[in-house]
Write a protein that binds this DNA or RNA. Structure first.
Lengths: 251, 251
DNA sequence: AAGTGGTCTAGACCACTAA
DNA sequence: TAGTGGTCTAGACCACTTA
């Protein structure tokens, strides 16, 4: 490295206008290069690929840039990385995708419809077996059960049931969930550290069928959500959407 | 900065064993710090937070570290970033979660069940309206329609229909999809650049009900997938899962 | 003990965009 | 045109894991 009057002259980024054949080394280009080598089976599933150091040298860029590219691929589940061992092409073509879980108010308003939230039930109740299992609590310890529905232009858009573990929560009153969903109250009153989603198809039953104004047994898209605050189970909820509702992800 | 015998002595990482009160500045700790300030409403939804430069100075770390922390938060949808403008707390509490979309073989074998793939139909057909719309093609241009089902211990686990745009695909024969799913053939024969998932609940109909051995109208979890290779529409598929099947994501 | 990925730093330039 | 995020670099140290 050459030093001039107290500062560095580092190897400059390749000039774009110099008409040369130097190629850009963005992390995206490196990611694409790696992806193409995987697709073409130059590197096969389960196989170790070169180390970051080797790739950086080969591609003429910094190791950090290779790291950035490979990190993205690892987050997509395309490669698997372990210290000391190296980086492998994932053995199975499993893929991850990111799903938008919107707040229902936003979702409804994005449709250009009038949003309304309606509390339909509030009180202590023994948890359902699913709720107890999800929260890892005894099924005879009563929890706060809040039921509500969401309307879009007065048509049922979604209904939900949420069990709240009052043992670990600040005082919550009916007023707190009369105007705004329990999830919003939770988000600003508990530091939620992690959670779990499950998505399934189920037939509408009981309150769900009534609130959504659909016959019993109609397919409903069901989203279960469990929230934790460190080691404390905080809440378990089920939201039900009538047919035609889609969860969408681009990638 | 002090220079000694041709090299730098930079400000060293805080020593852990020096008994001092210096705290570590990992990107995770900065992310958590920012998260806590958002949760506590120190920074409210819609509000601009300090610039990377300011945060780096305040927290005593490099801007790149702040950038890494904020990038993660932006990817989760918690904050929104725009050049020249700055970083805002997301106005809506919308959340993103990453979903595992496993290859079915892996999924079945993880259950400890015997996996089997069965081709049930192969031939040119006019696309359904949904398929034509998803692929942005004329509905009178015939596409290759491949139907298949997956078994776990000889019980139906999932069935699928996939439309392939032969106009942009290499030659594909029945043999290519007799033993292995069309998706696997696609993955190694086309450079897929982007795609789209939709998840919904629907009632089983026709072939789907027959193949899954369930009554018509039974709720089935439906996963639609559209694949693109640059600007070319490549495939549209629908996979159907019987009730009780769950898509799960941890976060 | 040694190899590999994970991360931090200081500095630089670039890209986008509101004013 | 100026301000902010996006990225690249060279170097360093750390963390985890296998040998």
């Amino acid at each position: 490295m050459t030093r001039i009057s107290g500062t560095f002259v580092r190897s400059l980024r390749p000039a774009r206008s110099s008409g040369g054949s130097k190629r850009m080394n963005t992390w995206q280009s490196i990611r694409n290069d790696v992806l193409e080598r995987i697709r073409s089976r130059e590197w096969e599933p389960g196989e170790l690929i070169p180390t970051e150091e080797q790739l950086a040298q080969e591609m003429g860029c910094a190791r950090a840039t290779v790291n950035r590219a490979l990190r993205e691929l690892a987050e997509s589940g395309i490669i698997e990385r372990r210290r000391k061992v190296g980086t492998r092409v994932a053995a199975t073509a499993s893929r991850r995708t990111t799903l938008e879980m919107p707040v229902i108010r936003t979702e409804v308003e994005a449709m250009g419809a009038a949003y309304a939230y309606l509390l339909t039930s509030f009180g202590m109740a023994e948890p359902s077996p699913e709720a107890a299992r999800a929260l890892q609590l005894d099924s005879n310890q009563p929890l706060l059960l809040v039921k509500a529905q969401y309307l879009a232009d007065d048509q049922p858009h979604c209904c939900e049931a949420i069990w709240l573990n009052t043992a670990v929560l600040p005082q919550i009153s009916r007023d707190d969930v009369t105007e705004t969903p329990a999830h919003e109250w939770l988000a600003s009153n508990m530091p939620l550290t992690h959670g779990r989603f499950a998505i399934l198809a189920d037939g509408a039953t009981g309150d769900c069928a009534v609130n959504l104004r659909i016959p019993e047994g109609t397919p409903v898209l069901t989203i279960e959500r469990t929230n934790w605050s460190n080691t404390a189970a905080v809440s378990f909820s089920r939201q039900f959407y009538p047919p035609q509702h889609r969860l969408v992800s681009e990638e």
